[in-house]
Computed example of a mutant assay.
Amino acid sequence: MRVMKQWGSLVVSMVLLALISGTAWAHKASDSFIYLNQDRAEIRIDVALRDVAVALPLDRNGDRQLSGAELRAGRDQITRWVEQGVTLSSAQADCRLTGQQWGLSSHSDGPYAAGLYTISCPDGATPDTLTYNLLFSQDPLHRGLISLESDGASTLGVVGPDSRQLALSAGEAPGSLQLFGTFLYEGVIHLLIGLDHILFLLVLMLPATLRKNDGSTPVGLNQRLWELTGIVTAFTAAHSVTLALAALGIVRLPIAWVETIIALSIAVAAMNVMWPILGRKTWKLAFGFGLIHGFGFASVLGDLTSGVSQTVLALAGFNIGVELGQLGLLVIAFPLLYMWGKTHLYGRAVVPLTLVAVGAISLYWVAERAMAI
């Protein structure tokens, strides 16, 4: 009976891996970018073409991409949809948006439909609230990332399905503490929706959970915890460095290449557990590939423009949020895997099959993402 339960758990684990692989989220989540300049009474709204293709019936050939002809034919429909989904209002009533320019903009993850509007509020008032309602029905993880310029000062904000309004008046606009908390929360969410990052952490964790590994893996719990601490510290240090470099615009890499290499890093890490051609010092592997993962995280902040102090504050909150999400996963997963590791089936079947499944999923991602480059 005990063996049957162990095999049942193994089958459930493999099925879950197969199911979630089909709905995996890359590090670059679904985001729109809003640049609001109160001083010039202007707002620019950028929406990813891939999101427009999901929300509107413009993709005539069904390839989930918008060609130039499809985009031109759907321009009026796109602008009406955007104008209905983004509302500015003052104390008196809704403000009017008047289109000035329309075209394409480029962000780290590809082309976006971009519209520039002038803002006109009743009695010449200044808008005090932004309401955002795009794409939440299609993607509950979608976010609107906002860069706000007012009275010569800059700040950042985020709107989501649970917080669709952003206060714009001087007394109610996001303060430093609120900005930090907002991006801390976004960091946790970004970690949790990044299945590729989660699988990479799982692979890095597995050697420390094995009962024995030809004498190279510590047996005692304390030694295993120290090994895991070293791995996590190396990974955290590496992606924190590149996250900061990319978010501050010091170093930029094409996100399509970054996401492809991230997927490849999972396959290499999984292979190295079975055949340690890169050595058994897992912390070195964690540090090396952690540098690449940091560029993936940075895509959320790198496409916003704001003051350096605001960007640094958002970066700090976002990075800490990523680490909290990572720590939460480890606190939950490691004890379970450690207890499971006491069974003979774990090392003989669970770990090998998990590595094969993770490797296959990541190689599928590599092929899928490489085709988009």
Score class of each variant (00 low, 15 high):
199 L>E: 00
199 L>F: 12
203 V>S: 02
203 V>F: 03
206 L>N: 01
207 P>E: 01
207 P>W: 02
207 P>V: 00
208 A>T: 11
208 A>P: 03
210 L>C: 05
210 L>I: 09
211 R>K: 14
212 K>P: 00
213 N>I: 08
214 D>K: 12
215 G>H: 00
215 G>V: 00
217 T>V: 11
218 P>D: 02
219 V>P: 00
221 L>C: 01
222 N>C: 06
222 N>A: 12
222 N>D: 15
223 Q>F: 05
223 Q>K: 13
223 Q>G: 15
224 R>F: 01
224 R>E: 01
225 L>E: 03
226 W>S: 12
226 W>L: 15
226 W>D: 07
228 L>Y: 05
231 I>S: 03
233 T>E: 00
234 A>G: 15
236 T>P: 02
237 A>F: 10
237 A>V: 14
238 A>H: 03
239 H>P: 04
240 S>N: 13
240 S>E: 11
241 V>W: 02
241 V>P: 02
242 T>R: 06
243 L>F: 15
245 L>N: 11
245 L>E: 09
246 A>K: 05
246 A>I: 04
247 A>W: 15
248 L>N: 09
250 I>E: 14
250 I>Q: 12
251 V>K: 08
252 R>N: 11
253 L>A: 15
253 L>Y: 06
253 L>V: 14
254 P>T: 04
254 P>H: 02
255 I>V: 15
257 W>V: 02
259 E>R: 05
260 T>E: 00
260 T>A: 08
261 I>P: 02
261 I>Q: 04
262 I>A: 03
264 L>N: 00
265 S>D: 07
265 S>C: 09
266 I>T: 06
267 A>P: 04
268 V>K: 05
269 A>Q: 08
270 A>Y: 11
270 A>K: 10
272 N>Y: 13
273 V>H: 01
274 M>R: 07
274 M>K: 12
275 W>G: 00
275 W>Y: 08
276 P>F: 10
276 P>K: 06
277 I>M: 09
277 I>V: 13
277 I>E: 04
277 I>S: 08
278 L>H: 02
278 L>Y: 07
278 L>A: 12
280 R>I: 04
280 R>M: 04
281 K>S: 14
282 T>H: 11
283 W>T: 04
286 A>E: 08
286 A>C: 11
287 F>M: 15
287 F>D: 09
288 G>M: 06
288 G>N: 06
288 G>H: 05
290 G>Y: 08
290 G>V: 14
290 G>F: 11
291 L>S: 12
291 L>E: 12
291 L>M: 12
292 I>H: 07
292 I>P: 07
292 I>G: 07
293 H>D: 13
294 G>M: 08
294 G>L: 08
294 G>I: 08
297 F>I: 06
297 F>H: 10
299 S>C: 06
299 S>V: 12
299 S>W: 03
300 V>P: 00
301 L>W: 00
301 L>C: 02
303 D>C: 03
303 D>W: 02
304 L>T: 03
304 L>V: 03
304 L>Y: 02
307 G>V: 15
308 V>D: 06
310 Q>A: 14
310 Q>K: 12
310 Q>F: 05
310 Q>G: 10
311 T>M: 15
312 V>Q: 07
312 V>W: 09
313 L>F: 09
314 A>V: 06
315 L>F: 09
315 L>W: 06
